[in-house]
């Protein structure tokens, strides 16, 4: 392979450079595509509405979707290992209910918030154990987790619980202004930090590289002596912890917890991750891509709000975009398979 490349003349090399770039960064192409879609949507909306892209609007997209962003980071880990986690929406709702009820009993939020994260991690661990040690399909195992969390949420209370705890509300209520309408809330900062940590974990740690290896080919990873079981388990724990954190953020966002919160959020999360270029077969994708996916999702919602048409169009558009991206991914996979 290398010898044929060195034989190429300089002229030819110049011609094939874009191709080589494409080949080397094949897994980034879906991310670029998502960025392209995002830019196209923003430009289109700007042209259509005249005055669309304001600092306030961009800031609000991060504010409104910070919980989704956190969920998407966790989901990216699981999908990269070749699994799927349907429980995230229900876990977010349950931890929110639990946290709100603990706060109502007078516990300080410095105790409650870590408890919520730990609960999420525990449910994630349960799902992971089912998947790894009992060979249950991730779909079914996380479905059980979803049922469990959904039901437990109803056990806590059937009604909405209002949150009056100051630190929790501070997360959402504080708007750190940055001039000319730009602002960011602590929830947004937390979400961006999660993205940063997630991206760092995947790119620079042994655990992160093993996640890619397991998703690429579990058998090979095992034969290489990589700790497959521990890694897969950890991926579900990461996703569960993220769901617990999303519970904190979502409770702050709505100022209350309601057991029917987050129905269908798992689907939105998966859609955002897939739009962000992560392959559902595992082994290829980036947390940054998932972030772009969440922004695409938020932008669609905003544009549909602007258009003033029925909100049911959001789901239809997301479905259509999902389809588009899956077909694009399919073509990329088919091409790289041919190359091999």
């Amino acid at each position: 392979m290398t010898s044929t490349q060195t034989v190429l003349t300089g002229e030819l090399r110049a011609v094939t450079r874009p191709h080589r770039f494409m080949a080397r960064h094949a897994s980034w192409i879906p991310v670029f595509a998502a960025v392209g879609i995002l830019v196209a949507m923003v430009v289109g909306a700007q042209l259509y509405f005249g005055k669309f892209l304001t600092p306030r609007l961009v800031s609000s997209i991060l504010l409104d979707n910070s919980y989704l962003l956190i969920l998407a980071v966790g989901m990216t880990f699981v999908i990269l290992t070749g699994g799927i986690d349907l429980s995230v929406g229900a876990v977010m709702s349950f931890t929110g209910m639990m946290g709100a009820s603990l706060l109502r009993q007078g516990l300080p939020s410095s105790v409650v918030a870590p408890t919520m994260l730990a609960t999420g991690a525990l449910i994630g661990l349960g799902v992971g154990v089912l998947v790894q040690y009992f060979d249950v399909q991730p779909f079914i195992a996380s479905l059980a987790g979803m049922f469990l969390a959904r039901g437990l949420g109803f056990v806590v209370s059937l009604n909405s619980i209002k949150v009056t705890d100051r630190p929790i509300l501070w997360l959402q209520g504080t708007r750190l202004q940055a001039g000319s309408g730009w602002y960011i809330t602590p929830t947004g900062i937390i979400a961006l930090l999660v993205v940063l940590v997630g991206a760092g974990l995947l790119a620079y740690t042994r655990f992160g590289r093993t996640v890619y290896a397991v998703g690429g080919n579990e058998q090979s990873a095992r034969l290489m002596g990589l700790p497959v079981a521990r890694t897969k388990l950890l991926a579900y724990v990461v996703s569960g912890t993220c769901a617990g954190l999303a519970g904190v953020i979502f409770t702050a966002y709505t100022g209350a917890a309601y057991p029917l919160n987050g129905i269908g959020t798992e689907l939105d999360t998966i859609a955002a991750v897939v739009i962000g270029g992560t392959l559902l077969t595992g082994g290829s994708g980036f947390v940054v891509g998932s972030m772009i996916g969440v922004f695409v999702y938020g932008m669609i919602k905003t544009i549909i709000n602007f258009l003033g048409v029925d909100q049911s169009w959001t789901r239809i558009t997301i479905g259509a975009l999902l389809l588009l991206f899956v077909v694009v991914q399919r073509l990329i996979v088919a091409r790289s398979a041919r190359r091999r």
Binding site: G319, V327, A334
Partner: peptide, 23 residues
């Protein structure tokens, strides 16, 4: 025909279907 994973292919309609029904 397109060879898309069943979970994701049917997820498309699962997301969009209720929207279509609402329309």
């Amino acid at each position: 025909v397109l060879g898309i994973q069943p979970i994701i292919a049917t997820l498309v309609l699962m997301l969009a279907g209720r929207g279509i029904a609402l329309l």
